[in-house]
Design a protein around this nucleic acid. Structure first.
Lengths: 204, 204
DNA sequence: TTGATAAACGGAATTGCCTTCCGTATATAA
DNA sequence: TTATATACGGAAGGCAATTCCGTTTATCAA
């Protein structure tokens, strides 16, 4: 859990004009909210977030007037972490394997966090910035991996298309059963390989 | 707003073992909820539904223990009405026009009712029965219209596919701005015609 | 028609969460 | 070190969800 480029941006965005203790509590709250949201979902009482962070509820509301502000803050950070993981995986693994690992990580991000998928697809204006986060940060990250594995995957697939397909596949079908989603994503990954059978090939 | 075949089914499903006043209140509540949901969205206070129906809150909870029960009841009825409209439109208009009108009506159903689209795509188990309603009742209705206009629309399009495309297009992008959705559906309808240009044709 | 009984009703009461507000505490800079 | 702006905590007020129970009413058998 070391600092990454995104933390710098975060600092710049939030530290501005913030007293030291306020900044500290801001970070504590995002940490706390990440824990609470993962445990109890994004509808958990604000009080529980405050308790987890060891601050009063007033502090939560001063920093994050609307619940969606806190949700966005939490997932913004997770999106950053996911995007940052791409180049690391690219160094660590063979190109296609790196891509596979990253998509798995992306799935964990969307699927593990209860309520993230629903928030993404809710249509609420409060979450459009979150959707933008996903596009802006994750598509380039995916693009790097796709280019790295260019010779191994179908030439007619772009990162943007792949992202789009993943996003649609992850539209929530059922809240508690994500296995079908995982399977379909697995199918999709397998289908990416250049040597994979096309529709015109023989079946089975 | 006359009785239709679906009302009979509804009677059979709900009147069983219900005292007359209970049945009456059940109907009053669904009527009331339809009004309230249309006005204030599906998160409106239960009290307001009770008031609109002229009953106590206790009655609401006895008949519809969970909010989703009430939501499902309301939209189930609207789905029925929409499905029932298909054959009527088929008699009233030329085949393709009937199809167009019906899709417009479907759009109104999904788009007008605040929260319907979100509920449909929420992934909440409570709403799977509602999704099933849509499939089971609307796909056959659509099928009838598609078959009626068979000679006028592309041969490679099935009712199920068209339904699927419509459902995905109506996944909520923004809660308050459905214009893009309407436009895309309009494009889709135009693209259905046999004489429409294919991708392989010259560009504009 | 009448009376017994099960079913349903209404709304007060309870509970829990959201949100605001303000007296107190503290970081910061002169 | 002191003044001041900033932030803090948590009590208080309000709203909606949900339960509970005394009262009312539909139903049916006599």
């Amino acid at each position: 859990m070391s600092k990454s480029s995104s933390d710098i941006a975060e600092q710049a965005a939030t530290a501005r004009n913030l007293r030291a203790d306020a900044q500290r509590n801001h970070d504590l709250l995002v940490d706390a909210a990440a824990v609470v949201f993962a445990t109890s979902g994004v509808d958990a009482p604000m009080k529980s977030v405050a308790d987890q962070a060891g601050v009063g509820v007033g502090t939560v509301y001063r920093r994050f007037p609307r619940r969606s502000d806190l949700i966005v803050a939490v997932f913004h950070r997770e999106v950053d972490a996911c995007a940052d993981a791409a180049p690391l995986l690219a160094m660590q693994y063979e190109p296609f394997e790196a891509l596979t690992h990253w998509i798995e990580r992306l799935l964990d991000l969307i699927v593990t966090k209860r309520g993230l998928a629903a928030a993404l697809h809710s249509g609420e204006p409060a979450y459009t910035s979150l959707r933008d986060d996903f596009e802006v940060r994750l598509v380039p990250a995916l693009q790097g991996l796709v280019e790295g594995a260019r010779t191994e995957i179908r030439a007619d697939i772009t990162a943007a298309e792949l992202w789009n397909a993943l996003a649609r596949l992850c539209a929530p079908a059922t809240v508690d059963d994500f296995e079908p989603t995982r399977r379909m994503v697995d199918v999709l990954i397998n289908g990416l390989r250049v040597e994979s059978r096309r529709l015109s090939d023989t079946r089975d």
